[in-house]
């Protein structure tokens, strides 16, 4: 059962920021992740500040330059179903449709999805782990089958979002309302690596709110995709996922990004894999090479060694698929 908290539904962005400026206040957009954390006593919260009335934060729009702007409160289901998104940024639509379950896609927002708390069962459970201010990452010596193989440092979570890797591949920018005014942060710099701070997931300050996410106009020849492998067909987070956004000239890859989900504490851009395909035609050998490159630095924990061949297979298949090979 949920513990007690005060509640306020902000009528303006400014009011929301003001309400969030008090200690123990937490922002609530769709609420699915927040309520789950509160129910599990993951952190304290004395006040829930709802921003669900801020309708100006909803909606998907084509920008004048051919990019896309997505209001942070837009439900994930709408991102998945949006013809605008599908038209130019299919990978994001695919990622959104892979999130959780239909009901949660109707409830969860795109802004909330990139700000999710980790799903590590030690973090969510009754364990005073490093990320909750303790001294130990229980995953390191414990049940770590779903934990990271890349980028682990003191904390070995994987970032749970499906949309964040797709957005990162598509070079998204996060727009943030801050008390001092608004600011923008490239998604590359939005998530906090545990090396920098194992208790934070994003660069957001307590009274900052994500207002929208923008995608640049697609470069010529852009193709994008997202696929995740999971232990079961619904609800589950990625055992391994890969977001591709590659610009082709003919059958040559001229630029682009390859981002892994379920691999690292943050959405993980694999420059090694990118370098293996950019400037080349993707055939079976290139795909295999790129897949191997993506796993070059991977280190398995006791129970997640499977992720290395899994990522190799997945990246290889997805590269071949996007190349139409």
């Amino acid at each position: 059962m949920l513990p007690q908290f005060n509640y306020v539904r902000a009528q303006s962005l400014e009011e929301a920021q003001q309400q969030l400026s008090t200690d123990g206040a937490r922002v609530c957009a769709g609420g699915s992740d927040l309520l789950g954390c509160l129910r599990d006593d993951v952190f304290d919260c004395s006040k829930v500040v709802s921003i669900s009335s801020l309708n100006q934060l909803r909606g998907i729009a084509r920008t004048r330059d051919g990019g896309i702007r997505i209001g942070s409160l837009t439900p994930i289901a709408e991102v998945a179903a949006s013809a605008t998104v599908q038209e130019t940024h299919a990978g994001l639509s695919q990622a959104a449709s892979e999130v959780a379950s239909p009901q949660l896609r109707n409830q969860g927002t795109i802004g909330g999805n990139i700000c999710q708390k980790p799903r590590c069962w030690y973090y969510r459970g009754e364990f005073h782990c490093l990320r909750k201010g303790g001294t130990t990452c229980y995953a390191l010596a414990g049940e770590n089958q779903y934990h990271c193989i890349l980028g682990g440092y003191r904390c070995y979570i994987v970032h749970p979002s499906d949309t964040a890797p797709a957005l990162l591949a598509l070079n998204a920018t996060v727009h943030i309302a801050a008390p001092s005014g608004s600011r923008t942060v490239p998604l590359d710099e939005f998530h906090v690596h545990p090396r920098d701070d194992p208790q934070r997931e994003t660069v957001l300050q307590g009274n900052e709110i994500v207002t929208e996410i923008t995608l640049p106009a697609p470069p010529p020849g852009l193709r994008s995709s997202y696929r995740k492998v999971r232990a079961r067909g619904s609800w589950d987070f990625a055992l391994a996922g890969v977001a591709l956004a590659l610009a082709f000239n003919g059958d040559q890859v001229v630029s682009g990004r390859i981002v892994l989900s379920g691999a690292a504490p943050v959405p993980w851009r694999s420059r090694e894999a990118e370098n293996a395909v950019i400037g080349r035609r993707i055939d079976a050998a290139t795909a295999r090479e790129a897949a191997a490159a993506a796993m070059e630095d991977a280190t398995a924990l006791k129970r997640n060694a499977y992720k290395i061949p899994l990522f190799k297979g997945l990246v290889e298949q997805q590269l071949l698929a996007i190349a139409g090979a």
């Binding site: 089958q145 492998v229 999971r230 232990a231 079961r232 055992l239 391994a240 129970r303 997640n304 060694a305 499977y306 061949p309 899994l310 190799k312 297979g313």
Partner: peptide, 11 residues
Amino acid sequence: IDPTKLVNALA
């Protein structure tokens, strides 16, 4: 039987 078991064995 899920990918965590099968993919290693297949590889």
